[in-house]
Simulated assay, not measured.
Amino acid sequence: MVAIGLSAGAVARVRFALSCLWEVVASVRVLRDPGQHAIHLPWVNRVQPRLAEAGLVSTDSGLLWQLVPPAPGYLADFLNPPPVGLAPDLGQELAVLRATPPRTVRAHLDLYPGLRPPALSALYADPEKGLHRLAEEIEAYWRLALAGDWPRIRALLDAEVFRRARRLAEDGAAGLLNDLHERVRWEDDALLINQRHCAAPDVPDGSGLVLVPSVFVWPSVLSIAAGDLPQLAYPARGVGALWECPPTAPDALSAVLGRGRARLLAELGTPRSSTELARRTGLSPAGVSQHLTALRAAGLVVTHRQGRSLLSSRTAVAEALLTASA
């Protein structure tokens, strides 16, 4: 059990951030043990061969691979410096990583059990040179494994932040923190994280907390309590549908309505909110709203309220158009 002290003053400093590096590190852990992350198997099967060919996974010489052991092995905190906001930039995060003080790198490497493999020994001997090599590996990994899927991942993470911000506005900090994950709860001025294989000191009052929604951390959570600003990476909602093959709109219908509006009609086989449509299509929320307004005016979409959500669905006319143009 990890207990992160969060008094009222610290709760006032809780914020959300998105991170490319968190997705890199968590996705490597997925590749380490795909059976524990079955939701991501479509992604694993697609990217693992190209990563293996590039020598980035399943190799004794890969620095990134050696730094990210299978769960529940220790994960060096310097791999995930606190992200700064909601517009993640891999280059900026890697600049922070490369600037990690050598003493910090060595202190974290000292926590790894057993004999160091050659890649980690070289990093320990020359942290500055090793961090530049690590950054190059991460850039190559990102290009092969994550860059192509980043728009859909980013859309899901943006939707998660929006959802949580609304929860905070409606239910306050307690409602937000107690709804993040089954292993996380806030009570008695502390955020309790049920991780059997991890122990960390309480965070001093006033430090705050960075909440990092993640795709690849599913189904667990990862936390960093060391340093001045603790972090909690937790699974974003909707991950289960992330790798589904999206329905395709017929080309003939796209030529008439435009690709964006035709794609929305294809997605509306079941009622969906604008937020979910943005996540599934990669369109901006504003773009989805504009397209839905036009489709409603044309009698192709209807929208109704369900609780606090507005859900849109296809009309019979839209069904006939899709069928005729298929």
Rank of each mutant, 00 (worst) to 15 (best):
R163S: 02
L321G: 02
L51Y: 10
A318P: 00
G240M: 06
V288E: 11
R15K: 10
A174E: 15
K129Y: 12
A286H: 15
S27Q: 15
P213S: 05
A99Q: 04
R314W: 00
V25E: 00
R261A: 12
N178G: 06
A12H: 00
D179N: 12
E187Y: 03
L120A: 01
D202G: 11
L321A: 12
R143V: 02
V105K: 03
R46L: 13
G258K: 11
G227R: 13
A320M: 06
S207Q: 15
A233C: 12
L120K: 02
T315Q: 03
R296M: 06
L109R: 06
V317N: 02
R196M: 07
L292A: 07
S27L: 14
W142N: 06
A122V: 05
L242Q: 09
Q231W: 01
E267F: 15
R13L: 10
E53N: 07
R237Y: 04
A10R: 12
D188G: 10
V203Q: 11
A147E: 15
G130T: 01
I153Q: 12
S207Y: 10
D158M: 11
A52T: 09
V302K: 04
L321T: 02
L232Q: 04
S223R: 07
T100I: 09
A236N: 05
L144V: 04
L115Y: 00
R296P: 03
P219A: 09
A10C: 08
R280H: 14
P83E: 04
D158V: 12
L209V: 01
L322Q: 06
S309N: 09
P230S: 13
S274A: 13
G148W: 03
E170K: 05
L18I: 06
Y74K: 13
V203S: 08
P72M: 03
G208D: 05
G206F: 04
A135K: 02
V288R: 13
E53Y: 09
D77V: 09
F16N: 01
R163I: 03
L120E: 01
T303W: 01
A99F: 03
G130K: 00
L242P: 12
R32E: 14
R143G: 00
G282I: 14
R308T: 14
V301R: 04
P151S: 13
S214E: 07
L264W: 14
R106Y: 02
P247F: 00
P70S: 15
A165M: 14
P219E: 11
S274N: 09
W22M: 14
F16E: 00
L56W: 10
V28G: 01
V212D: 13
A226I: 02
H40M: 07
N178C: 05
H132W: 05
S325R: 00
F78T: 03
Q36K: 03
L97I: 08
W142M: 07
G85Q: 14
G238Q: 08
P34D: 12
G227I: 09
R296Q: 06
L31D: 05
R46K: 13
A52Y: 06
A122E: 07
V203H: 01
G91W: 07
L31R: 10
P102Q: 05
A10Y: 03
A262F: 07
I153S: 03
E182V: 15
G258I: 11
A318D: 01
S313E: 15
A119Y: 04
V221H: 01
A320Y: 08
Q36A: 12
